[in-house]
Design a protein around this nucleic acid. Structure first.
Lengths: 353, 353
DNA sequence: AAAAATTGCGTTATCGTTACCTAATGATAC
DNA sequence: GTATCATTAGGTAACGATAACGCAATTTTT
């Protein structure tokens, strides 16, 4: 079904049909009705190729995420996925503008946002780690479609949210802790970004798993400065002779693992953390970390870009939430981590008959 | 950069440029050279929208998979993902032709193939469960792009393979067995499709995990007819008093779980199987199954269609292998199974402050 | 009542690519 | 010297959607 066919059926010209379809007025009410009837009856869908050819629309997505080199390269992994998607979609007029910020410095976030909005942006991919500032930024530029990544923001300002359920992630970490350390004792949750939604929810999920189990005593530790956290760990070992496990709610697990190994306490301590960033992978291979929860950062970046593209170029309604599976990584399957990385792929050949 | 611009730079008409770009001859060697130089210098990429508008190409993907209602609905899940992708891509001229077969009947596979190829097909999505027949079919129609799904075929006839590494899956199942049943004893691997590549590789991976562990004795059981397998299980319990775990290498886990519960042996037996099909989900919620490995069937179908589309419509080179992550499902995280299903999504709101 | 503005609709050029149809030019054959 | 052919190249009509423009026929304003 094309505009010309609709025009023929309605006994008008394509110009009139076009004016009806785009609500550009200057059409008699009876004509509008007749045309809309035909459009609905035949379920007319505009030809995407013709439409985009004519409009020669450029679709630029602004990307606001923390510094790529921060957090042990976690954001670089997200950005890898973004780049992969953009590469695939470049011939469909999609491009990006990257703007990094320092998540410990709210002003840098607002600055990044303002800088970005001075460029021509058609959509925004944002990691809403700073809820208030993100809300403020969106209120300042409310007309654009926003995709949230890595972490949800409990509001309906997002077109799509690509993130893992942090509560469930923490809950599952609890289950793994119990499997890996069945005896019970004292267990510690470490948060380095207390105010972050993901952090506190993961901690809540972990506690929730043990809430009815009297054998497991859960302690929480918050840290601010860098050395602070490691020192608190030492203190905990002194206080709790039965300290058997540590759950770090983010990718900083390597910091604490190193200290625990240094203290000679690794043998008695199960360490569970987040994300297969390079240093964590090495730590796991060296036996310093027992379990990692992964949230597939490349996939998140890739998917978020595709959702915005579908909205912007294809005019489709994206899924409101894209839940990221909770991957359990153990030393036994970290070799499969290429499964989690778009840039490598395993070869079937070697295993084949 | 457009064809018109190239033509201007080369001092020829767009018709000539077009003839060069499509190798349609009738151009002087010197002109060809000049035009190709410009094309390379400016890295000319044809406009996808214009190209497809002009060609108004239809891209139909033939889908050959086992009956949707077989294997407890596993293939329906794959097909759900296929449908989701096709829905998104329908406005980009993508459509499918489904052809089901009975994997126990090689002839039905060949018949399905022949039926399919009588229709206008531009690409094929195929589950190569029958290696010889698949090879034969491809050799018969070698010019089309093929995507393999669910299971690899060790040959280079596929444009793209979307599948999980079955060896690693079995290996990880071994690890989970050890975690869930740390005592050791006799453990059984059950295969219902011995000749299937996935089945035998998963079994091999599981055995490999325990290959240097004298505490775990691994026995293999093959079954053909339906009741046969369940009866063999009974026999095994009689023979091995220390039978502590069963690994079923596919989604038929429910069959054996039911029998084991009936025998009153569930308490002493850890049961690990594959795939969150509806019956397995229920079985896990009822405590009949302890661990499932999932291979994200919806994602497989979705991704495979997208890869073929990228090749067919966008003329891009798809990734050769798309490895599917090995998901570990436990009763504690099966509630998150919506994470594995495109059709549901969790709401952040309920958990938010 | 004349001028101005509005309404309703048709016409047409354009986006970049493709494929076909001519039109030159030069070479060869008679 | 003309007819025939091959080679090389230019011209152009689609593909479908869009939006500017044009032109009557009305209605509103002065």
């Amino acid at each position: 079904m094309t505009i010309a066919e609709i025009a023929k059926l309605a006994g008008v010209s394509i110009g009139t049909v076009d004016r009806v379809l785009h609500n550009r007025g200057r059409v008699a009410p009876r004509t509008i009705e007749k045309i809309m009837q035909i459009v609905e009856d035949h379920n007319y869908q505009p030809n995407t190729f013709a439409r985009n050819l004519k409009l020669s629309k450029k679709f630029t997505i602004g990307v606001i995420i923390p510094s790529l080199h921060s957090e042990f390269g976690y954001w670089q992994l997200i950005y890898d996925g973004v780049l992969k998607a953009v590469k695939e979609l470049s011939q469909l007029a999609v491009s990006i503008e990257l703007m990094e910020y320092d998540r410990r410095n709210p002003k840098s976030f607002l600055r990044a946002g303002d800088l970005l909005f001075h460029k021509k942006i058609d959509a925004v991919l944002i990691a809403p780690l700073l809820p208030d500032e993100t809300s403020a930024l969106i209120d300042k530029y409310p007309q654009l479609p926003y995709a949230f990544i890595d972490s949800p923001l409990p509001c309906d300002k997002a077109l799509v949210t690509v993130a893992q359920n942090p509560f469930r992630g923490g809950f599952l970490a609890g289950r793994m802790m119990k499997l890996l350390s069945p005896k019970g004792g004292t267990y510690i949750i470490i948060q380095t970004h207390k105010s972050a939604y993901n952090s506190s929810e993961r901690a809540r999920g972990f506690k929730s798993y043990f809430s009815h189990n009297p054998d497991y005593h859960i302690q929480e530790v918050e840290t601010t400065s860098d050395e602070d956290g490691e020192n608190k760990i030492e203190e905990m070992y002194r206080q709790h002779k039965d300290l058997r496990g540590i759950f770090i709610v983010n990718n900083a697990v390597i910091r604490f693992a190193n200290r625990i190994v240094l203290l000679g306490r690794k043998n008695q301590t199960i360490i569970i953390g987040y994300d297969i960033v390079e240093q964590n992978r090495e730590a796991m291979l060296e036996g310093k970390v027992d379990c990692l929860i992964s949230q597939r950062p490349e996939f998140q970046g890739y998917t978020a870009i595709y959702q915005l593209y579908r909205k912007g170029i294809l005019n489709q309604k994206p899924d409101k939430n894209i839940p990221i599976p909770i991957d359990i990584i153990l030393p036994e399957n970290i070799q499969d981590d290429n499964s989690y990385n778009f840039n490598h792929s395993w070869e079937f050949q070697e295993d084949c008959i």
